[in-house]
């Protein structure tokens, strides 16, 4: 029975972890390419969630079938958020390309507040219910383990997005340019790579993944508000550091690991410790393995 309980919590943890992983990817990709911790990233996740909410509501009212509502809401939310990500980079970070890193970091915090309070001004501070897009169905595995259709949808969406991301990063021209720029920006420029466009593409992809996480989050917790990005954003940052910031597989593993640890901690009866444990993980990683699980030890060039 204890084992089954553990597996049950593991399944729940993977759902939460998928959300962290999708957000963490944006942190890690942006850090990889311009060495910026983009603290506005959690708020892009929030915007993505709201766009998903309005799309789903309107599309469902128009009488579309649920699966189509879900797919279209995802696509719309990801597209709009990608454009938002590109605009943030162009307007707020690009003018600071030659400024000190702390200046850009403070700007990112400013952009974060801007998105949060613009959200409050437009939709109000209260939480709103997220429409139930798919009818929840419960499935029972091996006698006692419960899985619902939402969890299957989350895992499916995350896996599909990861495959697309792997394909983009390893097989396409823009993906190769992204890896080249993040490894050595000047050498990439000498290949004729348009560095600004490559950075924009990175923000677009990261923001689209955060938006997908926003839609999934809405469907899981049924409640969205303009401040909803703060905590998941910070935790996804922890996940990215845990996996090794700058590493794409690291973000994925870090997110899933953090989600699982959190869920197991709550399931053992310490749910008030859940958030604390996430940040304790950050502290431990920074003390014992600052480069993270998949990070490389960065040596100073001689």
């Amino acid at each position: 029975m204890a084992m089954e309980y553990f597996i049950q919590q593991l399944i729940n943890g993977i759902s939460v972890g998928s959300i962290y992983a999708l957000i963490a990817l944006g942190y890690t990709m942006v850090y990889g390419i311009i060495k910026l911790i983009n603290f506005a990233h959690g708020d892009v996740f929030m915007v993505g969630s709201f766009i998903g909410l309005y799309s789903a509501r309107n599309l469902a009212n128009a009488g579309l079938p649920p699966v189509l509502v879900l797919l279209l809401s995802l696509v719309i939310s990801m597209t709009v958020s990608a454009l938002l990500g590109i605009s943030i980079e162009r307007l707020a970070y690009k003018p600071l390309r030659k400024a000190s890193r702390i200046a850009v970091l403070i700007t990112a915090i400013g952009v974060s507040f801007l998105l949060e309070y613009t959200g409050v001004a437009i939709v109000g501070p209260q939480a709103q219910g997220f429409p139930e897009i798919l009818n929840k169905k419960q499935y029972t595995l091996f006698g006692s383990i419960q899985v619902d259709s939402n969890q299957i949808m989350i895992l499916g969406t995350t896996i599909v997005l990861m495959i697309i991301l792997q394909f983009i990063v390893h097989r396409t021209k823009i993906g190769k340019a992204m890896r080249a720029v993040s490894y050595d920006m000047e050498a990439a420029r000498l290949m004729g790579i348009n560095v600004d466009r490559t950075i924009s593409a990175t923000f677009a992809i990261g923001s689209a993944l955060a938006a997908a996480a926003g839609v999934i989050f809405g469907m899981t917790y049924n409640s969205v508000d303009p401040m909803m990005g703060v905590l998941p954003g910070l935790k996804a940052f922890v996940a990215a550091v845990l996996g090794g910031i700058g590493s794409i597989p690291g973000a994925l593993v870090g997110g899933l690991l953090l989600g699982t640890v959190e869920t197991e901690v709550s399931s053992l009866g310490y749910s008030s410790w859940r958030d604390g444990v996430a940040f304790a993980v950050l502290i431990l990683i920074l003390i014992f393995k600052p480069s993270g699980l998949f990070g490389k030890n960065v040596r100073e060039k001689v």
Partner: peptide, 13 residues
Amino acid sequence: IHCPEGRRVFANM
């Protein structure tokens, strides 16, 4: 086309 000092190959690729 400029082939820079120190080779600067993309070591991760």
